[in-house]
């Protein structure tokens, strides 16, 4: 989660109406990529690991890896997404 100082560090950028849309298209593409990674991770850990008999916290290993894993991974990736790719700009007009 963002700390207060990081929030301030992510300063509001001045952009034209057109530049905002270029940026928003970039953000949307990155979001699709995160979705694809999560789905792939879920399939691989959910069905790929199940044949190995491992147990974590008394529960089946595939379950912990895929279900808890996809949740944790979503938080990590979305945090990266919003801090590295997404930009802060005025939703109203700048011009």
């Amino acid at each position: 989660m963002l700390s207060k100082s990081e929030q301030r560090g992510q300063a509001m950028e001045k952009m034209s109406y057109r530049e905002k849309f270029v940026q928003m298209n970039k953000e949307a593409k990155a979001t699709w990529a995160v979705m694809a990674v999560l789905i792939a991770f879920w399939w691989i850990t959910g069905f790929g690991v199940s044949r190995f008999d491992c147990v974590i916290f008394n529960m089946p290993g595939w379950f912990v890896l895929s279900c808890l894993g996809v949740w944790v991974l979503s938080i990590v990736l979305v945090t990266a997404l919003t801090t590295k790719v997404f930009k802060n700009f005025n939703l109203e007009d700048d011009e």
């Binding site: 953000e27 949307a28 979001t31 699709w32 979705m35």
Partner: peptide
């Protein structure tokens, strides 16, 4: 546990609508 796996598809129920459509 298979049903939890089934339910975890909902990991996409919140952030995509914000990240893809939200700002536009």
């Amino acid at each position: 546990f298979g049903w939890v796996l089934f339910a975890m598809t909902q990991v996409l129920a919140v952030f995509p609508v914000m990240g893809i459509i939200g700002k536009k």
